[in-house]
Design a protein around this nucleic acid. Structure first.
Length: 604
RNA sequence: GGGGACGUAGUUCAGUUGGUUAGAACGCUGCCCUGUCACGGCAGAGGCCGCGGGUUCGAGUCCCGUCGUCCCCGCCA
């Protein structure tokens, strides 16, 4: 292979095959850098050695595929290239075969400037030849293999579940597949193998995993593709801790495969605490948490500043940002997206001038050092509370949540904007976190009702069963005790990215029915949608639970990539189009007719 | 569904206040070159300025629309 020859191989005969990466033509002396996925080796064609072979080599162009037979030669000391792994040697060509010519590609894998993504995606086969992409795809393979090996070693079976399955119109939109044999009916591609893996537990395969494609017909983002790969697993008789330790085990193996050592066990944090300290359920631990500095102000101060004294006053600290210019300070306000009347005080100096005492306490309480940026976020005193009134059962009220969430988004925006200054985002710094005890239900303001925060198969806390019972008929009551029901659900978070989400599931049919009822699904509806599953639950279902992690996101972080598209060989654009194969496309009248489908010109 | 950025040579980009023939680098083609490695030298080819309309004596530049790519909000149980 082109990347393997070393000084020790000098004198040997070798055959190399690959692509012409670069040619340097010196007249009677011609150098070719020959590339394959392992690397690059310099080939030398010399008229002194063989005039005919050299002449043939003159016709070589970029991306031709060739085979070269020659002798590995130690380079003269002054021609050694220390920047190449193979730089001590070169292959002196005795024979050249042109295996295939190449049209001039729209861009070259050896280009240093990165071509625009549209062209890269259209000519993905060229793009994938670039060494960065080769590295990313190799990393992906190694990570997946390490995970497979680890889970197999722990007694997990990899079991396949169907891609053509049943539409469950909850959550994300389904991709539908029409059935020809059953006219007018549709399969759906799975959003996740959730119910199948639970049924596998009922079937006695007490440790299951699958590295599996999932499909969701929702709008895309840099970290969201319509088809993506999950590391899906489920086990019987687990505590949350047993799931966590399995995940910590395979992540250790996966990161080791990519050359990184990580520390386990990962820290854990209650959902409520994550909200209070970071304003988000996926905290990035690489930067300092919030500090509530309400106590640093006197009641009179708060009144003058028109700050609501009943809500937290949050100090966001970003280290080492240094003095901000007037313009930079002004730029903070537009970065702030207020929720529920939250207000931003971006000019800490002004606060310090007016309230020296308070500022001193804040500096102390936040651990502020010279050059640190402090921004305050607080509730407005006169904010009309047009929002839904207090949910008295929650530790964090909706009003508080609004403040925390606004501050959380600003914290991330500032962290990203000043990443070069605070230097907290270092390659190889992996800060994992388990976020636990999520609320079971979330209030949907547009539907004016409670929804499952995770999914409806998540088990509530044993201690909260009573609240569930009390709240089971209060779907539309924002004050319902449902608000306080905690779920045995947990997320794994890495550097502010949600890698995965899991839970202990409901294994009793009566509890499952109660959850459906609390979600406003009557027995008939529940039966129509999940009847097969409810029935299965009645035949001796063991307690079980599991998790699913996004493989693409893990590889993205390991590869240091900004987008999932960099670690998925054939990804889709923001409009869910594959530019290489040009999909989706209309289909022929004949195909539609066979399926009994007609297409409307507009969606109404 | 909403907001924002971008679209000029094969590629990456520049293009002033609207004003002669739209430039550079890399790549490409030809010639020269025996130690280069992002080789070098000389010469050359290559443009529907995304598309459509408008304003103007005159549009790459201003306006409207449209298409495409990217980012964000909504959405993602």
């Amino acid at each position: 292979m082109c990347g393997v020859l070393r000084a020790a191989d000098a004198g040997k005969k070798a055959v190399l095959m690959g692509w012409v990466n670069r040619r340097r033509d010196h007249g009677n002396l011609l150098f070719i850098d020959l590339r394959d996925r392992t690397g690059v080796t310099q080939i030398v064609f010399n008229t002194d050695r063989d005039r005919a072979v050299h002449e043939k080599a003159e016709t070589l162009r970029n991306e031709y595929v060739i085979a070269v037979i020659g002798k590995v030669k130690m380079r003269d000391p002054n021609t050694i290239n220390p920047n190449m792994a193979t730089g001590e040697v070169e292959l002196v060509a005795d024979e050249l075969r042109i295996l295939n010519e190449s049209k001039l590609p729209p861009f070259l894998p050896s280009d240093t400037a990165l071509t625009n993504e549209e062209t890269r995606l259209k000519y993905r086969y060229i793009d994938l030849r670039r060494d960065v992409m080769q590295f990313n795809i190799e990393t992906r393979h190694k990570v997946a293999k390490a995970i497979r090996d680890y889970l197999s070693s722990q007694g997990f079976f990899e079991i396949e579940t169907p891609f053509m399955t049943r539409s469950t119109p909850e959550g994300a939109r389904d991709y539908l597949v029409p059935s020809r044999v059953q006219l007018g009916t549709f399969y759906a591609l799975p959003q996740s193998p959730q119910l199948f893996k639970q049924i596998l537990m009922i079937s006695g395969f007490d440790k299951y995993f699958q590295i599996v494609r999932c499909f969701r017909d929702e709008d895309l983002r840099a970290d969201r593709q319509p088809e993506f790969t999950q590391i899906d697993l489920e086990m019987s008789y687990p505590q949350p801790e047993s799931v966590w330790s399995v995940v910590e085990g395979f992540l250790t193996a996966a990161f080791a495969a990519a050359g990184y050592t990580i520390q386990t066990p990962f820290p854990r944090m209650d959902y409520d605490e994550a909200i209070r300290l970071y304003g988000i359920d996926k905290p990035d631990l690489r930067l300092p948490p919030f500090t509530d500095v309400r106590e640093c102000f006197s009641p009179e101060n708060l009144q003058e500043l028109a700050i609501n004294p009943n809500l937290p006053v949050i100090a966001i600290r970003i280290p080492r940002v240094g003095e901000l210019s007037r313009k930079e300070r002004d730029d903070i306000k537009p970065m702030f997206h207020s929720k529920g009347g939250a207000r931003v005080y971006e000019d800490f100096k002004r606060i310090a001038n007016r309230y020296a005492d308070a500022a001193k306490k804040i500096a102390e309480k936040t651990g502020m050092a010279e050059g640190d940026l402090i921004v305050l976020v607080a509730g407005s005193a006169q904010a009309s509370s047009g929002e839904t009134a207090f949910a008295p059962h929650r530790k964090v009220t909706p009003q508080e949540l609004a403040i925390y969430a606004s501050a959380g988004l600003l914290r991330l925006a500032l962290a990203q904007k000043y990443a070069e200054r605070h230097q907290c985002f270092q390659k190889g710094d992996f800060r994992f976190l388990w976020v636990t005890n999520f609320p079971m239900f979330e209030w949907d303001e547009s539907e004016k009702q409670w929804m499952a925060a995770h999914h409806p198969f998540t088990s509530p806390h044993e201690q909260d069963m009573k609240l569930l019972e009390e709240g089971v008929e209060s779907l539309h009551d924002p004050l319902s005790p449902l608000s306080a029901v905690r779920a045995l659900a947990y997320d794994i978070v890495l550097n502010g990215t949600e890698l995965g989400s899991g839970s202990i599931r409901i294994h009793r049919q009566d509890v499952q029915s109660r959850i459906f009822r609390a979600l406003g699904m009557n027995e008939e509806e529940a039966k129509a949608r999940f009847g097969f599953f409810l029935e299965a639950l009645e035949y001796g279902t063991p307690p079980h639970g599991g998790i699913a992690l996004g493989l693409d996101r893990i590889v993205m972080i390991l590869a240091g990539a900004e987008s999932l598209r960099e670690v998925i060989p054939f990804p889709k654009t923001a409009r869910a189009v594959d530019l290489m194969v040009d999909a989706p496309t209309p289909v022929s009248e004949k195909q539609l007719k066979e399926l009994g489908i007609s297409v409307r010109k507009t969606v109404t």
